[in-house]
Write a protein that binds this DNA or RNA. Structure first.
Lengths: 249, 249
DNA sequence: GCTTGACATCTGGTATACCACTGCTATTTT
DNA sequence: AAAATAGCAGTGGTATACCAGATGTCAAGC
């Protein structure tokens, strides 16, 4: 237990999501979470409110708090947003990443390679659960290092949230990752790293754009194949309010 | 009164900010707001929590909720984020804005021109309060129309929040706007509009980048001149947490 | 005049209670 | 048996109360 109870609850719920115990579309009970942590509803509610603001979760009046489900449009939007933010970050990183971070970035890269090699040797086509979380962690770290290198905290915050969302969405399809996929991700990361390492901002931007767009395509294909599972109701949120309302204020 | 009390409180506080009654650095009393609206602390607190998540205000434990003050670094970061988001939006808009929105965009543009002309005729170098809010509203609308044209709600949400923040910051310097400035903004807007109207994505992107960077410079100059007023303490927020923590999870 | 210390009063954080509303289930009515 | 209905459990929304820590005030003592 560290810091406020709200932060505890936030972490707790997030980890449940990451471990796949809470999947998109599922309902989160404020009371249950509170009971599991031995605290009251208030901090749990605060944590969920933050998640609502971050777009990971939606509140449906008189039904419950629900993990966001993504339509094809939303997935595409999400990845486009990441392109806008992270390609910019990559170009900035190429110009001003510091040596330590660069070293971490390479390590992160090579660990992914190690994972791929290990998977190839094992021969089994699929990752087990541990390797899955490791892969997920390495990918997250790689992108975060680049975002951190910009030194722009606001960019970092926006990108972090969108990356988190695409990761939550990814949890439901990640089980199908094989050696080819892991190796492919490594190749992309390596390209990006090389461009940053030699200070080529334009190449870094282009590589990052390709990388994210590749992920976007994969997600959209997955979504098309599992369309039947999705139930997509419309909920109101900030974007809704702004999009519909013609005038400001 | 429309919708939930939380929304009421959110609007109420936002309007206070926009009207300059609440300036950066000032403390917001949950209890006072609640009393003014005749409601309890809870919805006010919810509204403020949302603002915290959006980065407009900060909570300082055992002191109060405070409207965010901006260091030069943060202002620069803010505008850079807007460049990343809005230049992308402008290029998208050039490709797929619909005729109605385009018409609105032009109207918005020309109203700004009208404002400039009116100001020129009046002879007085300064805007009065009404013209100031009108100018602010037109500027906001112009940018929102372009963002809306992308059809990307997540981009819209991120950009909306950052635009809102730069606007709040702008409230403290906006009083010095003269004819030249208004006309300058019009010229930039017109350039962007022209590029979008003829479907030139690259030009739209470039114009938007120039426009926002111009605003950035102005803000930084203002900040340098009024540095003495700023008191910049460090508070912890999401970005902080991510920036410092080396590993994820 | 200056320090000191008790006290009232702020704040955010948390817990708890209550309400209106919904959806489901079991009962009653037809 | 089928339909209508009454009741219960669950939800989000709101109000209220209490707490610990920080701050500001002001009078007593040096």
């Amino acid at each position: 237990m560290a810091g406020t109870m709200k932060q505890d609850a936030y972490r707790y719920i997030l980890q449940k999501m990451m471990r796949g115990e809470l999947e998109p579309g599922m309902q989160i009970s404020e009371l249950s979470i509170a009971a599991e942590l031995g605290i009251s509803r208030s901090p749990v509610r605060d944590a969920l409110s933050q998640m609502v603001a971050e777009g990971m979760v939606e509140r449906v009046p008189r039904f419950g708090t629900v993990i966001k489900t993504f339509s094809a449009q939303e997935v595409a939007d999400l990845y486009d947003l990441r392109v806008a933010l992270e390609s910019y970050a990559a170009s900035q990183a190429a110009a001003k990443i510091d040596p330590d971070a660069l070293k971490n970035l390479e390590e992160c890269c090579e660990q992914m390679n190690g994972l791929a090699e290990q998977l190839k040797k094992n021969g089994s086509g699929e990752l087990d659960a541990d390797m899955l979380t490791e892969m997920s962690r390495l990918d997250m770290n790689f992108h975060m290092i680049i975002l951190r290198a910009t030194g722009n905290r606001m960019l970092l915050k926006s990108a972090y949230e969108s990356k988190l969302m695409s990761r939550i969405f990814g949890m439901q399809r990640v089980s199908s990752f094989d050696w080819e996929h892991v190796h492919g991700v490594y190749r992309y990361h390596r390209d990006i790293y090389d461009a940053i390492e030699r200070g080529d901002a334009e190449a870094a931007r282009a590589s990052m754009t390709r990388h994210i767009n590749f992920g976007k395509e994969g997600s959209l294909v997955f979504l098309a194949e599992h369309q039947d599972l999705r139930h997509k109701e419309k909920f109101e949120d900030i974007a809704e309010r702004i999009l519909e309302g013609g005038e400001f204020l």
